[in-house]
Design a protein around this nucleic acid. Structure first.
Lengths: 340, 340
DNA sequence: ACTTGGCACTCAACGGCCCCGAGTGCCAGG
DNA sequence: CCTGGCACTCGGGGCCGTTGAGTGCCAAGT
């Protein structure tokens, strides 16, 4: 089947180009892969592949290089996610196992991912909106100031100070605390607004102003302020094969990486799919047109907490990266579920 | 005075080189600066400066470039910190003024600093050890698990989960909470261990095991775990004048920047001085031998919270960078003092 | 004791030139 | 449909020669 062989050729080109970082020619191809045909035949296939837009030549009479479209086909049809080796799994377990606290877990995760893939790793903090309330604490700082501390089951803590319109005793505070907690503790943050809607009706009118102030802050903390924190590691990996990987400069890539908002939107595209791969020009952000992103959601039991993934040149070991991202996401989900 | 003019020449060389990014020759020098002497004279001075190690030539018959030693002299003796312009001050005020919460303050600060200096900006989170305890909260998660939440007066929150050896009622927990707070609330974190030392003696023997477990975690949170968090912005600025600024690659610099521990040690060297400048080879870390660091402590009333600063090529606008770092540090200290 | 113009010298950068070789496209024959 | 052969293309590398900025030194001037 000529069609089948063409795909074989494309796969071979991608693999060779990724590993050698040099445009690959017909001759080198038949030598490195047992394709049982002559270079001339391969050339015909390559001409066809080029015609269809899967590969291109940097300049006449140089080998071929995959296009974004070529990588896309490779990822979708020609490759399988590469599972991690036993020692790699061991390393993950050992490295993440020793983590104490959420910050530590996240930091270790991002470093680990950067090291495994030798790319830039990005991990989003467990999102507030997708977690459940573990506890809401009200701390009286003075009789007109209260600190609201929200603790989620992913181990995250958010705090805010509220200036009260009136004064509030410790007893009143304790009362409010238990009212809040009995309503929302254990529930998803996204459900909280509904659950708290009738709260003002339940308290004495003279305390209502204070309650309203606190409630406003709580709701803001719960939903509006989706402070999507992100940590990153391995940016130095961008500066490895620069010349060929990032024509010109890595600057636009670094700039894009600093726009966390953009990154998060991109990562979010994973949705609930297993793995999301965005290649070169597919990326919404201009600066990432020369880069690819491999991301996934992590978390447990369908309730994904947030996303993590890697960013690298389009010339990337996709199977390996996908394997690492998926494996790390699973381990982290597991560890977070055990309680940090 | 020939000595004086030599210093003038050095200053002129530094300024020209920083602004043009090209080795500066004797002729260009007399044209751009009114030095009232001929190029030949300047050449003699330059030869002397080179002899003394303040400048060097990249190759024979190219202009001169300052050495690390030259920059050092420039910073120490030949330049003054450049105060920010009125619009710049306005911008700082406007940008930092709108911040809500500690995270927001820190994030805005680091972005601002990166933008002002067009270098990589680094801001250390207000350190735990130098702040005072605002409140310690104990939250019962179940009858054998307690979450310890520590809130500092810099607005920072740390939390930890403790597994208890025995069970603990809500009442006992409330009792412990007030004991803890009455002892350490308002005091420096560093004083806490002393203040808590006799706590076990004050409770009933049967509750002692639980107390000890909690106390251990509290102390650990207070002192041992000095989680020195750092945020960074503007790494893309490293990739601007690459060719000349960072011979070879910016990779080692990026690598060094990811080693937060190293960075913090370096920043810490500022001590309580106003501004600390570390130039090229003066830096302890190999990767930063081609870079300079301008840092300072920030905070209020002598009680500095932490450090912030910038990292850039040795060929840097030192007066401008120093002015920006100092100004930003002051504003941030002010804002944090007002309470976040 | 400095300063200065003059002068010979050095050397990186630049452009032109040529050659080499990898790689291609095409074609005619199997 | 595959294959060997062949002419062709063109980037990269090496090798000039030229140019010009910049230097060091010296002898003369103030």
């Amino acid at each position: 089947m000529i069609e089948d062989r063409k795909l074989d050729v494309l796969r071979a080109i991608v693999e060779d180009y990724v590993s050698t970082n040099e445009p690959v020619g017909s001759k080198a191809l038949v030598e490195r892969h047992r394709l049982g045909v002559s270079p001339a035949t391969i050339r015909n296939d390559m001409a066809a592949l080029e015609e269809e837009g899967y590969i291109t030549q940097p300049h006449t009479s140089a080998g071929r290089v995959p296009t974004d479209k070529g990588y896309r086909l490779f990822v979708d049809k020609l490759s399988t996610v590469k599972p991690l080796s036993a020692p790699e799994r061991k390393a993950i377990e050992g490295f993440l196992g020793g983590a104490v606290g959420l910050d530590d877990v996240v930091n270790r995760t991002v470093r680990l991912l950067a090291q495994l893939t030798r790319q830039v790793a990005v991990v989003q903090y467990p999102s507030l909106s997708r977690s459940a309330v573990r506890h809401l604490e009200l701390v009286g700082l003075s009789d007109t100031r209260v600190m609201v501390v929200l603790i989620t089951d992913s181990g995250r803590v958010e705090q805010r100070v509220v200036e009260l319109p009136g004064t509030l005793s410790e007893d009143d505070l304790g009362d409010l605390r238990s009212r809040f907690n009995s309503r929302i503790s254990g529930h998803l943050l996204s459900e909280a607004p509904t659950l708290l809607a009738d709260l003002p009706d339940a308290v004495a009118p003279d305390a209502r102003a204070n309650l309203t102030a606190i409630l406003a802050t709580v709701l803001e903390t719960l939903v509006e302020h989706v402070d999507e924190r992100v940590v990153m590691a391995g940016t130095a990996n961008l500066a490895r094969g620069t010349a060929l990987d990032f024509p010109g400069s890595i600057r636009p890539v670094l700039e894009a990486l600093e726009e966390h908002v953009v990154l998060l939107r991109l990562f979010g595209e994973a949705g609930d799919r297993d793995l999301h791969v965005s290649i070169g020009g597919e990326n919404p952000h201009e600066g990432l047109h020369v880069a690819s992103v491999v991301s996934t959601a992590y978390g447990t039991e369908g309730t994904s907490y947030a996303s993590l993934g890697i960013v690298g040149p389009t010339r990337m070991d996709y199977p390996g990266a996908m394997g690492a991202v998926r494996a790390v996401a699973r381990y982290v989900g597991q560890i977070l579920a055990e309680g940090s």
